[in-house]
Simulated scan of single mutants.
Amino acid sequence: MDWKIELVAIPVTDVDRAKDFYTKIGFNADFDESPTEGIRFVQLTPPGSACSICIGTGITEAAPGSVEGMQVVVASAEAVYEQLVAAGVEATPVKDMGWGLFTFFADPDGNKWAVQELPNRG
């Protein structure tokens, strides 16, 4: 039986600000609904990803900004770094860490992301 990770909750303080941030850096806004009182569920998907994130109200008790280690894999860390900077996001310059090229950034609440370009294994 397959086990597929398809959705990860990211705790935020301001849903609209977070949605604007993630769409500004290229995530697709798939869903934004309030199915019941006290719940707002926003699903966002990075380009080409089978896994989405969700933000909202009433969906997680985790503290906003408490997520560390979210990682995406891309074809070009440098291209993503340039895209992030162009969008006004503070990102670290691309660094070769031996197991890939990386840039790092955080969302407005401080949730931390790593962007990895896998090494050429020729």
Rank of each mutant, 00 (worst) to 15 (best):
G98F: 00
T45R: 14
M70E: 08
I55G: 09
P93M: 08
A87P: 07
T57C: 04
Q71L: 05
L101F: 07
V89H: 02
G69W: 09
G110E: 01
L101G: 11
G38R: 07
M97V: 00
F104S: 12
L84T: 03
G98E: 05
C51R: 14
V80S: 10
V85Y: 00
G69L: 06
A114G: 12
K95L: 15
G98S: 02
G100F: 05
Q43D: 14
A75Q: 14
V74S: 05
G88T: 02
A79P: 00
R40H: 03
A79Q: 13
A114F: 06
T103F: 04
I53C: 01
E117D: 06
V85A: 05
E68F: 11
L44I: 11
Q43F: 05
L84G: 08
G100A: 08
K95P: 00
V115T: 03
S66M: 01
Q71A: 09
A75E: 15
M97Q: 12
G48R: 04
Q71V: 07
L84D: 09
I53W: 02
A87L: 11
Q71M: 13
A87S: 11
P93N: 06
E68K: 15
L118I: 09
E90P: 07
P108I: 11
E78N: 12
A91K: 13
P108M: 08
S66C: 02
A50S: 15
G56W: 14
G65E: 03
S66Q: 03
G65Y: 06
A75V: 09
E117G: 08
E68P: 01
W99H: 14
F105N: 02
V80H: 06
T103L: 06
A79H: 05
M70G: 09
V67C: 14
E37P: 10
I53P: 00
I59L: 12
